Amino acid sequence: MITYLLIGAILVAIGFAVHVLKWNMLIAYSNSRPKAKTSKTNSERFRKILGFYGYFTGVVFLLLALLEYRGLSVPQTPVVSVFIILTMAVMYFAQKDTSEETKK
C-alpha cells in the first residue's frame, strides 16, 4: 500500500510540475531537440500530454493504494508492467504527434 501511495503522489506531483509549473527540465525530449526545431506550440502540447498522463497514472496508483487499504490484494508485477508499457506508448505517440505538428 505504501508503495502505491508514494508512486501515486510522485506521479501527480510530476504531472503538476510539468503541466502547470512548466518545468521542461523534467522532460528529456525538450532538452534533446534543437531550439530551431522546437516550436512553442509543440512544447506546450507535449507538456500538456505528459502532465495529464502524470495525473492519470498517479490517480490510478492512489486508487490501488485505496484498494489495498480496504483489504484487496493487488499484485505489483502486472501493475508495474502495464504502467511501463503505457508509458512507452504515450511517449511514442506524444513524440510522433508533436513532431508531425512541427512539420506542418
Rank of each mutant, 00 (worst) to 15 (best):
T3Q: 06
A9D: 03
F61E: 10
L62W: 02
A65H: 07
S99Y: 07
L72C: 01
Y53A: 13
L5T: 13
S81Y: 01
G8Y: 05
S32Y: 13
Q95N: 15
T102L: 03
G8P: 08
M88Q: 04
T87A: 06
A28Q: 06
L72T: 12
A17S: 14
M91K: 05
A36Y: 03
Y69W: 15
L5Q: 12
L63D: 04
L5P: 12
S39P: 00
L67R: 13
L26T: 01
K104V: 13
Y4I: 00
Y4P: 00
K37H: 10
P78F: 04
V74P: 09
A94M: 11
Y92N: 04
F93L: 12
T87H: 03
M91C: 05
T87G: 02
L11A: 11
V90Q: 06
S81I: 08
G71T: 14
V12W: 00
I14M: 15
S43K: 15
V20Q: 07
S30W: 10
I84C: 05
E44F: 05
E68N: 14
F16W: 15
E68P: 07
A65Y: 08
I84L: 14
T57M: 08
E101H: 12
A13L: 14
L5R: 14
M91H: 06
A89W: 12
Y53V: 06
N24R: 15
T102S: 12
Y92G: 01
M91S: 06
I85A: 13
T77D: 10
H19E: 11
T57I: 02
R70Q: 15
P34A: 12
K35Y: 08
F56C: 11
L6R: 00
A36H: 07
H19Y: 09
L5V: 08
L63Y: 11
E101P: 00
S32Q: 10
G71F: 15
F61W: 10
K37L: 11
L64E: 05
K104W: 06
A89T: 07
V12C: 10
V59R: 00
A94N: 09
V90C: 09
T57L: 08
V59T: 09
F93N: 06
I10T: 11
V60T: 13
V60M: 07
W23F: 09
I2N: 11
P78D: 10
G58C: 02
K40S: 13
Q95L: 09
L26N: 00
V20L: 09
F93M: 10
I2Q: 12
V80C: 00
Q95P: 00
G71I: 13
K103G: 01
L6C: 14
S32L: 13
S43D: 04
M25D: 07
G15M: 09
E68Y: 04
L21I: 10
T57R: 03
Q76A: 09
S39I: 01
L64M: 15
I7C: 09
I84M: 08
M88N: 03
P78V: 02
R33M: 13
I7N: 01
Y69Q: 12
I49R: 08
